[in-house]
Design a protein around this nucleic acid. Structure first.
Lengths: 371, 371
DNA sequence: GACTTTTTGGCAATCGGTTGACACGACCTC
DNA sequence: GAGGTCGTGTCAACCGATTGCCAAAAAGTC
């Protein structure tokens, strides 16, 4: 079978773009598709060559290890001539400083941790991107960890991560305030999408976006709407609900809370029956994923959107504008929050930091006037 | 300003779900939305308490550090009574082993690296999930790195990562074969979506899915189709093109290659004019992102899909079934590849490993019979 | 009771860097 | 020429674990 693969993808020295002139294509039969008998390949976990150390460089150049260390990290401290010799040797040996050996005496690991409930939730894309950009610009490494919405696990992972990181960004953490404060006693911690006293916190200001959304619905004639609640342990869910509660009151719109539900498409879908039963003409969901879940279920149920039900999401994730109808939503400035969080940790600046960029209402096609 | 925020999100000891009865809601004026003057908060980067070490435990229990180390890691080596005393002390001090101090003498870091061109590309979601699942089940940590489609940077990051990781998974790497082989001389390396001689490689078998796709198009009466090429440095792009080339030939369908383009929605959109000019009735894109880009541009240009143009994507990413029309695509078993890759590195098994699970054609609504 | 074996715990070296203290020579100054 | 300064490089301690080897104590054997 491996033969067939190699015929199919003939290798060249540079690995790809081989001429396919004599490749043999044949359909894979069902028996070949079975899991049990994939083509297999041998792993070569054999003898590896240990990476070069400053001791190797020292021996080769005839200086002491400490001189090597200084030549490589303290420009000017060592004679330029010597420094160059050392640099050349380092390059020829393919030297790379061992980050752990370095971290041990210094305490600096050159690494920031980013913890979120679900790495693959599109909501966090821009946030991750933003943090990545800042981190790598500062020559540091960003490590991502996932807590799977489990408090138990989140604390454990956070503690583990904390020991090997210069700072930690907690996004939409489900931990208790005290637990977060405890973590911050060990290493700098920044929380995003949550407000914790005494901890650098960055939350978008939900008022502008939500306010515009409510006005928008009011202008379309909606008098009765629902909020699709996310996880009850989510601080941001509480904020969105409370804010909406007041704004709806001010606008004279009646509001019901439906949920809590899982912050996923499935979670949204599951709540549709209750939405229908409530008789509301519009829903605002905790996030876009839930909104998309509702949207999909509506299509399956034959409920016309936006004619019979208007839907508003939250976050403006990837894909929100690809649906039909395109999803009206409230955009959170997550890229900016990610950047800021990373910058704060990266600079270790004692100065005050920005904390509350505004959300923006994005009007698309999933909202319309009440019939 | 911070006052307003606190009024808006009043804090309680447990952090959320505070009563919002007296919160004050007012619209944010435009001047407040300006970037310059976000509410700010002071960071407390003050004196941190250093984490507990085995020396602290040793002192408290009156034994030597080596005994502590053994009590915690070599069950049975130490008297149960002593071991328990040590465990209790460790717990009361909140001890957490410093992974770097441990890695230094042992060489084992308990960490796997996963490198991909773009963390936030939905294509890789399932792959990341799969790798994460296996890794964390094995008590290890997965660290993600992003290479931004830049070979220079990818090599640099890979080398840096390699020093602090037990093994490395390279996904859709743009590196040269030699570079990858060199990396694998230092630490175990697995490549995904690419075939490199001598390196454990996992690629989906594109034939089944692509074959069904071509048959599908042929049955719908398409006689002339286009392939929207992805990055020319992508091994997988070459494979998809070559395979399609043969399958189309066998089916008697004429085929043109359009591109290469960036593997993004923008990349797909940019190629639409050339698709139109070519006069084909169907396109198969390098990936779903490009297919979605074409789809969106078609909508903007008033080109009906699938009536005037059939579109097939690749990978079946999140959102592919949310569009209108829902995207017909070829699903890659990436979750499985991610799991397998992680398992191979995690077990360090010398045994042979599965390597080529089949792709599956997913027929949805973006393909139809030629008028 | 003397000898052997097993259990239990400590000593010290090691991993690969960093860094404060210091030695040595060159150069400068009065 | 004595004293001071500066530039350059080495020594040795240290970060927090792991682990091979050994010693003391306890248990077992004849």
């Amino acid at each position: 079978m491996i033969d067939r693969l190699e015929q199919l993808y003939p290798l060249e020295s540079n690995g790809y773009r081989a001429c396919a002139g004599d490749a043999i294509i044949e359909s894979t039969g069902p028996e070949e598709a079975a899991m049990a008998d994939f083509p297999a390949v041998e792993m070569g976990f054999g003898n590896r060559k240990p990476p070069a150390t400053i001791y190797d460089i020292a021996r080769q150049t005839g200086v002491s290890p400490s001189t090597v260390s200084r030549a490589l990290n303290k420009p000017g401290r060592i004679n330029v001539k010597t420094e160059q010799r050392i640099r050349d040797a380092a390059a020829s040996l393919g030297y790379r400083a061992n980050p752990m050996a370095r971290a041990l005496p210094t305490g600096r690991t050159g690494t920031l941790g980013l913890m979120l409930s679900d790495i693959t939730n599109p909501v966090y894309f821009d946030l991750i991107r933003g943090a990545e950009r800042v981190t790598s610009a500062a020559g540091q490494t960003l490590v991502l960890a996932e807590s799977q919405e489990a408090v138990e696990r989140e604390l454990d992972d956070a503690e583990r991560l904390l020991t090997s990181v210069d700072g930690l960004i907690l996004v939409a953490s489900r931990l208790h305030d005290e637990q977060i404060i405890e973590l911050s006693a060990v290493k700098p911690v920044v929380v995003v999408n949550r407000l914790v006293e005494g901890i650098a916190s960055m939350v978008p200001d939900v008022v502008p976006g939500l306010s515009d959304a409510v006005t928008h619905l009011a202008e379309l004639g909606h008098r009765s709407i629902a909020y699709l609640a996310g996880p009850s342990a989510s601080w941001m869910n509480a904020v969105r609900w409370q804010t909406l509660f007041h704004l709806a009151g001010q606008a004279g719109i009646s509001l019901v809370e439906i949920g809590p539900g899982s912050p996923t498409m499935a979670g949204g879908s599951a709540l549709l029956p209750r939405v229908v039963a409530s008789g509301v003409t519009a829903v605002i969901a905790y996030n876009d994923l839930m909104a998309l879940g509702v949207l999909r279920s509506c299509r399956e149920e034959g409920i016309l959107v936006p004619d019979r039900l208007s839907i508003i999401g939250f976050d403006d994730i990837f894909g929100a504008d690809l649906t039909t109808p395109a999803l009206t939503t409230i955009r959170s400035p997550l890229a900016q929050l990610g950047e800021t969080a990373a910058r704060v940790l990266s600079d270790r600046s004692e100065t005050s930091i920005p904390v509350s960029p505004p959300t923006v209402f994005v009007s698309r096609a999933s909202t319309a006037a009440v019939r």
